[in-house]
């Protein structure tokens, strides 16, 4: 049971985002050359332009920095899902990184800025036979 409906859009996996979406850990891209973290991932380091990038596991805690509540479905797949919440999480250990998600233990009208949250993962099978997604999501810490 995922927060968004069955058959809803999945991330198209690529070499840059696979650690984020398939490992069940909150993996951020890290620069070996300057030791900084960047999100979203990129082919080179946006801070020092270095080419040596790997991934580090973030603690997976943060706070709700902003949020929105869609009420009007932009397409038919969301008609019976609205209203739902979308939150922007500011990470505790990398405060310059903000990650989009849903607060899956909150109703649409229960989200507030500043709520401490922790990461959890939704296992979502790809109906077209692609790799299973472990989607980072958020619950009240």
């Amino acid at each position: 049971m995922s927060y968004m409906p069955d058959g809803w859009t999945l991330p198209a996996l690529d070499d840059l985002n696979r650690p984020f979406f398939t490992t069940g850990k909150l993996m951020l891209q890290h620069c070996v050359d300057c030791d900084r973290v960047q999100h979203p991932p990129e082919d080179i380091c946006i801070w020092c332009q270095g080419d040596h990038l790997d991934y580090v596991e973030a603690r997976g805690t943060g706070d709700v920095y902003s949020y929105v509540v869609p009420h009007h479905p932009p397409n038919e797949k969301l008609t019976t899902r609205v209203p739902y919440n979308i939150i922007l999480v500011r990470l505790d250990d990398y405060p310059h990184v903000r990650i989009l998600g849903n607060q899956i233990d909150a109703e649409f009208d229960e989200v507030t800025i500043g709520t401490p949250v922790r990461v959890t993962f939704e296992e979502i099978a790809d109906q077209n036979g692609g790799a299973t997604i472990l989607l980072p999501q958020w619950v009240k810490a």
Partner: peptide
């Protein structure tokens, strides 16, 4: 915008969470 099975690039970090319109 019509629903799409997969989102690429920056949208990969947004659309799976239902962020799917300019208003959002």
């Amino acid at each position: 915008p019509p629903a799409v099975p997969y989102a690429t690039g920056a949208a990969a970090f947004k659309t799976p969470y239902g962020e799917a319109s300019p208003a959002m």
